[in-house]
Write a protein that binds this DNA or RNA. Structure first.
Lengths: 213, 213
DNA sequence: CACCTCAGTGCACGAGTGTGCACCCAGTTG
DNA sequence: CAACTGGGTGCACACTCGTGCACTGAGGTG
């Protein structure tokens, strides 16, 4: 029974602390794969990492705080997807297809994060719920200003663009949920992509002939 | 400290049992209002009802079983809404508006049930999740066959109708979630109705000019 | 009226929980 | 090299939890 067990002996102190902290976050993410966050105990998390329960407090004040950091990490991850999608050139016709593909593959590649997001979005911990809601609202607004630049949508006023953005995000969320329902090594991925493309196309088709007021 | 305490003394036995059973369901529904189902304990539920923990087993084999009954009750409730919406005459133009109103008001009037549904749809208990998923899929199919009867949508093949139904249900779910985000005595209800109407209208607008294949 | 049924009781158990406290010792710092 | 810092330890506490068991007493039944 050694004390001060660590993954990497002889590592600088700050670095080692960061490693343990990240290990706690990873462990929590792993545990919420098959139960909800508020039924994961502090002790479970530390057990998974291999440290004693009280050592948890050297890194987080409570499980809630850890949860909020998890939300943050998740959206940092998600933002990378969006930025990539935004920067790509816009061949108009191919664009919807590419977006659907990107979304589905990205979610599949980062399952645990999106799993957490989808589950805790309406989960039992209020602070986490509202943190996620806030980030999603932010995302919708960004999308709305993006859409404002599209000439095909010039007949839509700002308020309606916000609604359109909301609907698109809703659809993307639903697609995300469908990816997560697939078995982890997903064969049905291509079907979901086709479905995603059609849903997005349908919405944008409606938007293209929508007249505000 | 009396034993055999009961809400209604001198009641027929079977009736009394049913009352306790319902009280357990109601208590559970009340408790999931601010935590997730799998972190509600059997003891909490019985404490809320005012019976001893072990008496729980006279009514349900486990919390999971109670959860499944709750899913059932919830969808029995939801089905009443759908049936009402379906039976109403179809003045085409007013129809979307009326549906949006009906949905929003109905959700508001049965908050606890829909709260439970939304939260546990992706919650930590697998059997409940899949029970809910199953019911929703059923609902989508019913909606799809309904849509098949609409002349405006005759250019859409069966597979695409299923997708359209899925998208509509997704939108309705999102609207449900928004109603639940409102304060219980909701003032913002009317705004959500307007939003719901626009979203549904947008989708159906796209559908009306969609050409399968 | 005697007997049976069974919803609800009361107790006890082992297991799991969050957190306070004193301690230890490797890594850093003057 | 001596002193300090702070991540991790080990123990202890007071809970809560699910469930097994023997029980009680009111409601139903022959």
């Amino acid at each position: 029974m050694r004390s001060h067990r660590r993954r990497d002996e002889h590592a600088p102190r700050a670095e080692q602390k960061q490693a343990t902290r990240q290990a706690l976050l990873d462990a929590a993410l792993r545990l919420v794969a098959d139960k909800s966050f508020d039924s994961v105990s502090l002790r479970e998390v530390t057990r998974e990492v291999g440290i004693v329960p009280t050592a948890f407090y050297r890194h987080f004040e409570s499980m809630d705080e850890l949860g909020l950091v998890l939300v943050d990490e998740t959206f940092r991850t998600a933002r990378r997807l969006v930025r990539a999608a935004r920067e790509g050139p816009l061949p108009a016709e191919q664009r919807i297809r590419r977006s659907a593909e990107a979304l589905v593959h990205y979610v599949q590649a980062h399952r645990p994060y999106f799993q957490f997001l989808v589950r805790e979005r309406f989960g039992g911990v209020a602070v986490i719920r509202s943190a996620i809601r806030h980030e999603i609202r932010l995302f919708e607004s960004e999308l709305a200003t993006d859409l404002a630049r599209a000439p095909e949508l010039s007949a839509i006023n700002t308020a309606d663009l916000q609604i359109l953005a909301g609907l698109l995000v809703t659809a993307m969320t639903a697609i995300t949920e469908q990816v997560l329902e697939l078995p982890p090594r997903g064969e049905g991925l291509d079907d979901v992509i086709v479905l995603a493309e059609k849903q997005l196309r349908l919405i944008l088709l409606g938007a293209s002939i929508w007249q505000s007021r």
